[in-house]
């Protein structure tokens, strides 16, 4: 069909940019509220901060319907296998925001019970600092992720597919280092 026959306005673009734009504007977060940060995550979704501005106010309860996991709070050794299972259930492409210092590094709880950084279990894209991060910090993290999605490759593969992976049921790294003295 010759272009002259078209009677409407149209745009040309390459498919990569289009997909990136679409993905960036339709992230569906999974609810993964663990501790204090979960309350701030809920505050971000509520009236005063309104995550709907970024098209992601609907937190999905089912990981199958979500492509962004916001790990909000400290991850205990007992929760770690559950977290990995939820991550595995999510559809590709998927992203992870580690919200708060406890999820990012273990924070002030450097002890036997807490996994020292959720990046030992799942690959993390953006770390949000704070204890807990305010809704503004979470939004900044989300916008940073949007920027990464907009400029990244659409057929992205994890460079190190094993990074952050450990067998379900195996003890976390921190427990092997610490433990009984």
């Amino acid at each position: 069909m010759p272009l002259e026959d078209l009677s409407y306005n149209f745009l040309t673009g390459n498919i990569e940019k289009l997909v990136q734009w679409a993905r960036q504007a339709s992230l569906w977060p999974a609810t993964f509220g663990l501790a204090c940060c979960a309350i701030e995550m809920m505050s971000s979704g509520a009236a005063d901060f309104d995550l709907a501005r970024f098209g992601m106010e609907v937190f999905r309860a089912s990981p199958r319907q979500a492509d962004l996991m916001i790990v909000a709070g400290r991850v205990s050794q007992k929760m770690a296998p559950v977290l990995r299972q939820v991550y595995d259930q999510m559809m590709e492409p998927k992203w992870v925001i580690s919200m708060g210092v406890c999820a990012s590094t273990g924070g002030m709880f450097n002890n036997y019970a807490i996994v020292q950084g959720v990046d030992q279990i799942v690959p993390v894209d953006v770390y949000a600092p704070g204890c807990p991060p305010g809704p503004e910090t979470l939004m900044h993290a989300i916008l940073t992720l949007h920027e990464q999605i907009r400029t990244g490759e659409i057929l992205r593969r994890r460079r190190e597919p094993d990074k952050g992976y450990r067998q379900i049921g195996q003890p976390a790294v921190s427990r092997m280092v610490g433990g009984v003295e």
């Binding site: 309350i39 400290r74 205990s76 007992k78 929760m79 559950v82 002030m108 709880f109 002890n111 036997y112």
Partner: peptide, 30 residues
Amino acid sequence: IGYLHTGMEKTAENLTYLQGATNVTRMDYL
């Protein structure tokens, strides 16, 4: 329960009385 076990009672034994309040305040975060 136990999916959020943070070991705070153990951590409290390693914090001074001035630091201790930062530990307990994260228990009931509401």
